[in-house]
């Protein structure tokens, strides 16, 4: 019964929220009657057509490819950096001020500058994603590594575990729940920065598709693409949360985890 209640909380309640928002939209559109605010009954068929025709898939694929490559590199860089800085005072003193200074910088706004160096292609966009997602990853890995029980490290030392082996076999697993929370933040912020940099440098990707529809005055299409990206953001977060809860069921459910990061 309790499991059923929880399932209601995690699946049905959000669905009810989405349905409620769509109904609210429909009502607002019927009251306002403006071509800038088409009703859902007009947007949803266009959304269906968009997904059926596959016209949006190349842009969807290029956005997702950049996002995942950026996330992969960010994880490979951020987690070791964070773990080491969580265990080494000297390294933390070195890296913390740089992270603090970089935190309020609008990362997607670096796009025109990075383009001067690496061109307007995938390299620049992936670089921006890596820079953005690395911050929460380093931060959370650091928090996780710092909180590891000292006795576990002593025991590992006592049985002759070297420092690199200790990092991999003791500190990494102990810090895993916090690392996965950082990964969730990275995914959410990664989508935002991917879309935003595509809106700033319009060439390919979902952000570009969205503004192309807007510039051509296809308003119902604009809203349909908004729904696609919003659904993508929600689904990626939801999918990762499902995996995260399976992997670390003892970790706290944090509703406020995806906030302290900036695109």
């Amino acid at each position: 019964m309790r499991a059923l209640g929880e399932r209601f909380g995690s699946v049905l309640a959000p669905l009810a929220v989405v349905a409620g928002l769509l109904v609210l939209w429909q009502a607002a559109a019927l009251v306002v009657r403006s071509s800038y605010l088409p009703p859902m009954t007009e947007i949803l068929p266009i959304l269906g057509g968009l997904l059926w025709s596959g016209d949006i898939y190349p842009d969807l694929a290029s956005s997702l490819a950049r996002l995942f490559v950026g996330l992969g590199i960010g994880l490979a860089l951020g987690i070791p950096l964070g773990l080491v800085s969580g265990r080494s005072r000297a390294f933390e003193n070195f890296i913390a001020p740089i992270l603090a200074a970089f935190y309020p910088v609008p990362k997607a706004a670096l796009m025109p500058i990075v383009m001067l160096w690496f061109g307007a292609g995938d390299l620049s966009k992936v670089l921006i994603i890596v820079l953005t997602v690395s911050l929460p990853l380093v931060y959370h890995a650091q928090q996780g590594a710092r909180a590891v029980d000292e006795k576990m490290i002593w025991s590992a030392q006592a049985v002759g575990c070297g420092s690199l082996r200790r990092l991999r076999r003791v500190i990494l697993p102990a810090a895993l729940p916090e690392i996965l929370i950082g990964t969730r933040v990275a995914i959410v912020i990664g989508i935002i920065v991917t879309i935003t940099s595509e809106m700033i440098v319009r060439q390919s990707g979902l952000g570009n598709y969205l503004f192309t529809a807007l510039d051509m005055g296809q308003y119902a299409m604009t809203y349909a693409v908004i729904l696609v990206i919003a659904a993508l953001g929600f689904l990626l977060d939801w999918a990762f949360e499902t995996v995260r809860r399976r992997l670390t069921p003892w970790a706290p459910d944090r509703l406020d985890a995806n906030l302290a990061a900036t695109p």
Partner: peptide, 23 residues
Amino acid sequence: LEPLIRVLSPLPKIVFFPAFLLL
């Protein structure tokens, strides 16, 4: 509030910006 937060807080809010420009 909690279901609302679950749905709305992970959304990339910037995608709604074109809608605000239109409206």
